[in-house]
């Protein structure tokens, strides 16, 4: 009973907050509703016994991705009048995308009704071994059966990361001011950084 109650609670909050993501006028509110949706989706994962996925969802999406989302959206200076002005212009495109999504959803429902699709032959290794915890089962699958796909995903992410760094990296001009060498800063001692002078009356100090 408690499980059913929790399921309906999580599910309805997910749907409600997903609706609020697109209904909210303020983009920051939208992101906050999105975070609520993520969080409750993690709750649903816990209910089906996939606690590892649930925790990853919270750590990765709520803890890192959404923070950056919020970070960017908060700093945007959004002019609401300009945004509404674009509404009419983008309306046909929006309708087109909505129609495509609707058609795909109907196809998906129809396909689901027709029965499952056979994606190759299962060798039974995908089934969770009895007595293994969630993490062990996922680890065994990822590093065993799907090692190639896993590595490819890793390489793609690495390339994306390097690409982002290369795109934003700017080599400072040689001799540019404000360049800091942390080793130099730490190695500095009071003896070399300060000098004692005895200025005489009416004269400046040469440094």
């Amino acid at each position: 009973m408690i499980q059913a109650l929790a399921f309906y609670l999580f599910a309805s909050v997910v749907i409600a907050s997903a609706v609020m993501v697109i209904m909210a006028r303020n983009p920051v509110h939208s992101v906050l509703w999105l975070i609520l949706a993520f969080f409750n989706a993690a709750g649903l994962m816990v209910l089906v016994g996939a606690e590892f996925i649930a925790m990853l969802l919270v750590i990765v999406y709520v803890g890192a991705v959404a923070v950056l989302f919020l970070f960017v959206v908060m700093m945007l200076d959004i002019d609401f009048a300009a945004m509404r002005a674009g509404f009419i212009r983008n309306f046909p495109l929006g309708i087109l995308i909505a129609a495509i999504l609707l058609a795909e959803l109907m196809l998906a429902v129809g396909a689901y009704g027709a029965g499952g699709i056979e994606l190759g032959q299962t060798d039974g290794s995908a089934a969770t071994p009895v007595g293994a915890s969630n993490i062990e089962a996922i680890g065994a699958l990822l590093y065993g059966r799907y090692i190639l796909l896993f590595e490819i995903a890793g390489i793609i992410l690495l390339v994306a990361m390097i690409g982002a760094i290369v795109l934003t990296h700017r080599e400072p001009k040689p001799g540019a001011r404000g360049r800091q060498d942390i080793g130099k800063q730490i190695a500095r001692r009071p003896e070399e950084a300060t000098v004692m002078k005895q200025p005489t009356v009416g004269e400046g100090v040469e440094l």
């Binding site: 993690a42 919020l70 970070f71 915890s133």
Partner: peptide
């Protein structure tokens, strides 16, 4: 079973209060 991950998940939420 995922106690440590739970702590990591919850502590990563703490930043939302500040932001």
């Amino acid at each position: 079973n995922v106690g440590l991950l739970y702590i990591l998940a919850i502590s990563s939420l703490g930043v939302y209060g500040v932001v």
